[in-house]
Simulated scan of single mutants.
Amino acid sequence: MRLHQFISANMESILKEWEDFARANQPPGRELKASELRDHAQEMLHNIVRDMKSVQTERERESKSQGNSPSQSTDTAAEVHADERLGAGFSIKLLVAEYRALRATVLRLWFKGEAPSHQEGADEVDDLIRFNEAIDQALAESVARYSEAVIENSDIFVGMLGHDLRSPLQVISFGAAKLKRMEEADNSANPLGATMLASVQRMKEMLNDLMDFTASRIGEGLVMQSGPADLGEITRQLVEEFRSGHQDHNFRYVSSGDCTGNWDTSRVGQICQNLISNALQHGNPEGDIAIGCEGLADKVVLTIKSEGKPIPESQQQDIFQLASRKHLEAGNPNRNLGMGLYIVHELVMAHHGRVSVLSTLSEGTIFRVELPKRVPQDLSH
C-alpha cells in the first residue's frame, strides 16, 4: 500500500495518537475537548494526501524542496491551527513537537504494518520524500503564522497600553500643574488629589496586567501561592475604593453565604479589580455597577453587572482571548478591551475556576466567575 493510501485508510488511528500527544502536553490548567485537541489535524492530513497524490513537474519539485510553496488566497489548515494553538496557550515548542510526533506516528505505523519488507523501490522512496516535504510545508506555515501572530499581538498590546495610559497621565499632569499654581493648600485640593491617586492606581493595574501577560505568554506562567482568603471581604474593600474614586457611578454590592476559600489573595483581588475596571471603562457613563459575591457549598460566585451596549452573542466566546486576529476586525466591540479580561481568564483558569459573560440589551452585561473553594496549595499557570 502506498503511503498516501495508508494515511487515508488509517486516519482515525493517526488522529488518535495526535490527540493523545496534545492532551498529554496541553498547557497547565487546560482541559481541552477532543475536537479542540485534534483541531485541524484531519484537514492537514487530507491536504498532505492530496499533495502526495498530485503530479509534480521537476521544476515544481525543485521549487518545493527550496521551501517555496504555492501561494493561496485563504488561510491554510496549518495556519489556522497555529492561531488556535496560540489562543489555547500552546508554546511554539509544543507546536513544533506536534508535527514531529505526527511525522513519527505515520512512518512508524506504516513501516510496522504496511511498508514492503523487501528493499524499497522507487515508489516507496518517492512517497517518503513527498510526505516529508508536505509535513515540512505545513510546519513552516504554522511556525510562520505563530511567530507573526506573537509579534502582532505584542504590537497590539503595546499600542493598547500606550493608548490607555494617556488618559490617567493627562489627569495627573493637569492636577500637578493646578496644585503647583495654588498659593496655599485648601479643601479644593482634596478631590483633585483623590482623582490623581485613582489615575496612578489605574496605571499600576495596566503595568501589572502587562507583566502578567508577558509571564503567561513567554515566561514560566503565572505563579501564585494559595492560602485562606475571604473573597467577600476582598470585594467589599475594592468596591469602597472604586466608590471613592468614581463618585459619578452608583456601586451596589451584595454578599451572601460563606465566601471564604483557599486562593491567592492578591490574584483573586486582581480578578475582581479588572472586572470592575472593565465595567467602568465600557459601561454607560454614570451608570450603575452591581457587584455580587455568593458563597455556595463548594464554590464562590462573583458577578459584576453593568449597563451599556451589549456584546454580540457571536463574539462573546472570544472576549477573553486576545490572541486572535478576530479582535482586529472592523466593527468588533472587543478590539479595544485591553489586557484586563485576558488576565482575568488566565487567573481564573489558574484557580481551576470558570469565567463567562452574558450580555443582552435587557439584562446588561454580566461577568460571572466561579472559584472552587479548595485548590492545590501551590499554584502555577
Rank of each mutant, 00 (worst) to 15 (best):
L94G: 01
T214Q: 10
S73L: 07
V200R: 01
V158C: 05
W263T: 03
L379F: 02
G331I: 04
E205F: 01
E148G: 08
Q315W: 04
L231V: 15
K16A: 11
Q56W: 12
M211L: 13
S13A: 13
A115Q: 06
M44K: 02
E79T: 12
R108A: 13
I291Q: 04
R2L: 09
K112R: 15
H81P: 00
I172L: 13
P27R: 03
M339E: 04
R252D: 09
I156E: 11
Q137L: 04
T360F: 07
S167F: 01
A41F: 05
Q26E: 14
S255A: 15
S244C: 00
W18S: 10
Q119I: 08
T105M: 07
M349R: 15
L32N: 07
I289K: 10
P228Y: 03
V355I: 13
E98M: 12
Q317M: 09
S324R: 13
E286S: 14
D155R: 15
A34S: 13
E233G: 05
L3G: 12
M182W: 03
L280Q: 07
T214K: 11
A82I: 05
A189H: 02
A229T: 15
L210G: 01
G162H: 11
R202W: 01
L280V: 04
A149F: 03
S306Y: 03
V254S: 06
D136H: 10
Q26H: 05
E220K: 14
N187T: 12
I319C: 05
A115C: 12
G221Q: 05
S13Y: 02
I218Y: 15
E58N: 12
R181H: 05
E370Q: 15
N336A: 08
A77V: 06
E307R: 14
L322T: 11
G219R: 10
L361P: 01
N332P: 04
H345Q: 14
I151Q: 15
D127L: 08
V301D: 02
Q377G: 07
N68K: 14
Q281P: 00
Y342P: 00
S188P: 02
L222N: 00
V223S: 13
D123K: 10
Q317K: 14
V375S: 08
P116R: 06
T365Y: 09
E19W: 00
F21A: 11
H4F: 10
E220A: 06
L275Q: 10
L231C: 10
M160D: 12
R374P: 00
Q273D: 13
S91Y: 04
E43S: 10
A290P: 00
E307W: 03
N284V: 12
G221V: 02
F367P: 01
Q270I: 00
M182L: 06
R374D: 14
Q42C: 04
G227P: 02
R335H: 11
E148P: 00
G340P: 02
Q137M: 12
E294S: 09
Q237W: 00
F251R: 03
R202L: 08
